[in-house]
Amino acid sequence: MHRKSASTHRPEETSGFRSLESFMKKMNVRTVLPALAFVAAFGAMTPAHAADKITIIVGGMEKQIYLPAVLCDRLGFFKEQGLDVDLINSKAGVEAENELLAGAVQGVVGFYDHTVDLQAKGKFIQSIVQFSQAPGEVEMVSTKAEDVKSPADFKGKTLGVTGLGSSTDFLTQYMASRAGLKAGEFTLLPVGAGNTFIAAMKQDAIQAGMTTEPTVGQLIKSNTAKVLVDLRTPESTEKALGGPYPAASFYVQTNWLESHHDEAQKIANALVKTMHWIAGHSAEEIADKMPKDYYVGDKDLYVKGLAGGKAMFTPDGRMPEKGPETVLGVLKGFSRNVQGKDIDLSKTYTTEFVDAAAKTLGSSQ
């Protein structure tokens, strides 16, 4: 498998949220780097304060798979918990993960599979609220690539992913491996999402690629691409991956969690309340609460995509049963990093905060 890099436009600042570039530009590197080193070394000695600002980085806030984070903020649930949360936008989950490990942010909204991948590298992060039980991703194939009928036809093709080391990278490699392909028989190209993904497909820079709504709907409407593998529902995901695949989640570093229990619980309370809100409202009602620029000029298409993929969300923020085992099986299917490693799945997530949130919200167990 070959990997290529590509220049992609980062998500712009929209609707009051900040982009990662804006966040980093405002940081004085000479003063921040020593501070981050101090925090990494002595963070556990610092007492938790509920009034502390919480910075959360999201691997693409405009993506429907991550909408619970933005929705939670817009519904006022973070403030309701007494939290001052700053949401930062990034282009991919792997970029968000790196900022978390550097100590620049307190939490990440990204895919759960990163917790397993990082444990194999000796680094520990934990999901404390699970947004989804299916990836919400779709492998799209260009309408020009008539010879690509299944992942077995990826041989010799260039495949789009959001970023190298991202969850779209993981899932694409797994599907290719499961279809009998070997590393080196296809190329992965990081093209982001949205306009950059669409442009790459139109220009034949990629013949197939993995992306999410609302990009999926735009590609289909313009007849640029069609669905090859659909991972937007639990049923289609089980067929393609062998079981439920917990994907979008809120995760933090384990050492931060140990010293910031109160903040973690308040974040969980807000996010779990959001998951209940999503379960009890229609796609159109949810869309009405989102920033209008997320519709990309077509609200009806946005609502249609959300309605079709709404089943991916958990109703209560809980980790789906057997989900972690499916993720581990997928990663072991292709990743040399994970293969042969003794992974303790109990250290990749915790239900403690969701359980407590359910009691706080008066929900049934």
Rank of each mutant, 00 (worst) to 15 (best):
V161M: 15
V161W: 13
V161C: 14
T162Q: 09
G165I: 01
S167R: 05
S167Y: 04
T168K: 13
D169I: 00
D169Q: 02
F170D: 11
L171N: 13
L171V: 06
Q173E: 10
Q173D: 01
Y174H: 12
M175W: 11
A176Q: 03
S177L: 01
R178Y: 05
R178P: 04
A179Y: 07
G180V: 00
L181E: 04
L181N: 02
L181R: 00
K182H: 02
G184C: 01
E185F: 01
E185W: 02
F186H: 07
L188H: 02
L188T: 00
L189W: 14
P190H: 10
P190I: 00
V191A: 03
G192W: 08
A193V: 05
A193H: 08
A193Y: 12
A193I: 10
G194H: 03
N195A: 11
T196L: 06
F197V: 01
I198Y: 09
A199Y: 07
A199Q: 14
A199S: 09
A200Y: 15
A200G: 03
M201V: 00
M201K: 02
Q203R: 07
Q203L: 13
Q203E: 14
I206K: 11
Q207C: 07
G209I: 00
G209E: 05
M210L: 14
T211H: 14
E213Y: 11
P214Q: 04
P214A: 04
V216Y: 11
V216T: 04
V216F: 12
G217D: 02
G217L: 05
Q218I: 10
I220K: 15
I220G: 09
K221S: 15
S222K: 02
N223H: 15
T224K: 12
T224P: 14
